[in-house]
Amino acid sequence: MPAITLDSLLSLEKYSKERQAWKDKLIPHKRARTVHVGDHVTLIFEDELTIRYQIQEMLRIEKTFEETGIRDELDAYNPLVPDGNNFKATMMIEYGDPEERALALRKLIGVEDRVWVRADGFDKVFAIADEDLDRENAEKTSAVHFLRFELTPAMIAALKSGAALAVGVDHANYRFELPEVAPETQAALVKDLQ
């Protein structure tokens, strides 16, 4: 999958004019790529469009127009685009009450390594988490993690042929299995695979 390049980004001015159209396109796109794994874990499976939007938004918010700053954003976000052999996802641990969230994050240390995907007929593939930096310490985990799920060619072929995709979490303090993602989600994710 091609990386997002400096030349392929919109200028701040052009993006500002087209921003609402981008949002209108991205909302249903992202909805189809979102999986709720139980009540408190959400995975947003990223792709070139979701990451391109994130880069454009960051450049807009930070008013970055110099090439070095733009390249820094590209270097930070391009690794989150799937490369054809994997799924990449942003994982969010969500609790509405701040005290409940703080307690949960203490109990969920290591949860990011226990998230999995499974093509029907194959073993679970556990996430490779937070490759850019560690997002937990001895006291708590972070509420946001970045995950990569590496798939074998046989798994990819099975998913492309319609094998069900399951998603789950196997952590001592949080267990949930979604036996099959929604058809529109599977269709969106299969497009990430070569």
Rank of each mutant, 00 (worst) to 15 (best):
I44P: 00
L9H: 07
R101Y: 02
M1K: 04
E150R: 13
Y95E: 01
D7A: 15
L147M: 10
I61W: 06
L133S: 13
T5W: 04
E150W: 10
M92K: 13
Y53H: 12
I128N: 09
M91A: 08
A32L: 13
T42G: 05
A102Y: 00
K160N: 03
K63R: 14
E177R: 12
P98M: 00
S142R: 07
R71H: 12
M1L: 11
T152L: 06
T152S: 15
Q194T: 10
L147G: 10
L10T: 03
N173D: 13
D97I: 00
T5V: 00
L6E: 14
T42H: 05
E73Q: 13
Q56F: 01
V190Y: 08
H171R: 06
D130Y: 01
E177F: 02
D97C: 00
R118I: 03
T64W: 02
A89Q: 01
P79V: 07
W116R: 03
I27G: 01
I70C: 10
L26M: 15
L12D: 14
L108N: 14
E184F: 01
L159K: 00
L147H: 10
K107H: 08
D123V: 03
D39L: 14
L26N: 06
K191E: 11
D120E: 15
A104R: 07
R148Y: 05
W116N: 03
E67K: 11
L10Y: 14
P179T: 00
G69D: 04
V144C: 07
P183A: 04
L6H: 13
K63I: 07
P28Q: 09
I109P: 05
A119F: 09
K30R: 15
G162M: 09
L49S: 11
G121T: 10
T34G: 15
K63P: 06
R31D: 12
R114M: 11
L43C: 02
M155F: 05
A138D: 15
L193R: 08
K30P: 04
I44C: 02
R118G: 04
N137M: 09
D192I: 01
R33G: 08
I93F: 02
T5H: 01
V169K: 07
H145S: 11
D170A: 08
A32H: 14
A157R: 09
E184G: 00
L59A: 04
V125I: 15
I70Y: 05
T34Y: 13
A119Q: 05
L108T: 14
N85D: 01
L133Y: 11
P2F: 02
V169Y: 05
I61F: 09
D113C: 11
K107I: 01
L12P: 13
Y53K: 09
E46G: 03
A154F: 02
A89P: 04
T34W: 13
D72I: 12
V81C: 12
Y15A: 07
G96K: 00
A102C: 00
F126I: 08
L43N: 02
G121K: 09
E100A: 13
D97N: 06
L74W: 11
Y95K: 02
D24V: 15
A164G: 00
R19H: 10
V190G: 05
V181F: 05
V125W: 13
H145P: 11
S161Q: 14
F45V: 08
I55G: 06
E139Q: 15
K160A: 04
E48K: 10
L105M: 07
H40K: 10
L9Q: 09
